[in-house]
Write a protein that binds this DNA or RNA. Structure first.
Lengths: 210, 210
DNA sequence: TCTGATTTTTGACTATTGTCAAAAGTTTAG
DNA sequence: CTAAACTTTTGACAATAGTCAAAAATCAGA
């Protein structure tokens, strides 16, 4: 079953060679943009990061289960959602070059309260919490890298919080069109509406009057 | 309460840094709850943390200016707000034992987009960004402490984001009553309404029907 | 303690958004 | 290429929240 789905995934990306180690370079390049790390740390990292390939619609993380890995997205798109009164609420999206996990679960070790589902086939690089902790123990510079990454993600979330909470649906949609057109292009309207906190009908009307 | 009484006395001597080193113990105790640190690191920290005392209504941070310090709140309460169409939008509160700063400005070095104002007189402990960076360079364990603190604050913000965005005003108010009654008790209704993203009148009505 | 200032509540009305249902448009798989 | 499945748009109406104005309650300083 896994083989078939991997194959299905390849069909849509015939020029992506899946198991060549040089692909991890993209992750390492991305890390370098956050903080420069030495040969030794980067080699140690390579040894404990594993590639994961998942097909469209697959669940990466499921509510109620503990999430023990942090993922880097090489390619693909996904969404985080949870259930409220039986309805799915999509609260964030992930794309290429994003680090993703069910953060609450990953950090606390408690069962995840959210689901993460692929919206496209994806190439991910995974590191376990144990390995990451070990890496940070061993290399101060990796602890720093993670600290700096947290700062970036915190600022992003803070901005998201303010926009979500204190702007109208129309403003939020325009913001999205300007700052994150890739979301508009690649994500079904229903998910975007949920993400913006309005009904799909309202979003459709907002959009129709530009 | 003892602290408040003592503090009422200080209110008449704002900006006078009282040299009471034993009070810093509260900060160090709080740090210990996040991550245990050694004598050397904790002594180095002591040397670069300064007490700041501010009276009610004073601005700790003003929009447009770069925020170069991180503060620990020994006592008092404050709010972060910004202007939207000439109106103040209060988006967070700080209380005893909280770490506060204009995070975006502190991290990026860009001018602050928010204001932070005391709602009560406060005792704060300040560390400059330069000192903090130096401390983290010197002590891996302090870098870890900060990394762990970020994790906590990220999770808090994530929860705040989901509540703010996907729950009704009534639900958010009840949540506040349950999870943060100190906010209800110590903060004027107008600020709470702004924080919850509803008009003061609506909040008053929500509250009147329990 | 009293008075003026501030904060909170209430009322009437308006604007915005949600819901349900159906039509139109788009994708996907055989 | 076509039919079925899914996504997006439109319409009618209901529910929710916002605005403005004024009254009531509370607080703070003289």
């Amino acid at each position: 079953m896994l083989l078939l789905t991997i194959f299905g995934f390849w069909l849509h990306r015939p020029n992506v060679a899946v198991s060549t180690p040089d692909l991890m370079e993209r992750l390492l390049t991305q890390l370098t943009k956050i903080h420069q790390i030495g040969e030794k740390a980067s080699n140690d990292l390579r040894a404990c990061i594993k590639q994961t390939i998942l097909p469209k619609n697959e669940m990466l993380i499921t509510e109620g289960r503990v999430c023990r890995h942090l993922y880097f997205m090489e390619a693909g798109s996904l969404r985080g959602f949870y259930y409220q009164d039986g309805k799915e609420i999509t609260h964030w999206f992930g794309f290429e070059n994003d680090f993703v996990t069910s953060f609450y679960s990953f950090i606390t070790g408690q069962p995840s309260v959210e689901n993460i589902q692929l919206m496209d086939g994806a190439i991910l690089w995974a590191i376990s919490k144990e390995s990451l902790t070990e890496m940070m123990d061993k290399h101060h510079e990796l602890e720093r890298l993670v600290r700096l990454a947290y700062e970036r993600y915190y600022i992003r979330l803070e901005e998201r919080y303010v926009n979500a909470h204190f702007k109208t649906a129309a403003e939020r949609y325009e913001q999205l069109v300007e700052h994150a057109p890739h979301i508009i292009e690649r994500v079904p309207l229903g998910y975007i509406a949920s993400y913006l906190g309005v009904s799909q009908e309202t979003l459709s009307r907002v959009r129709s009057r530009f």
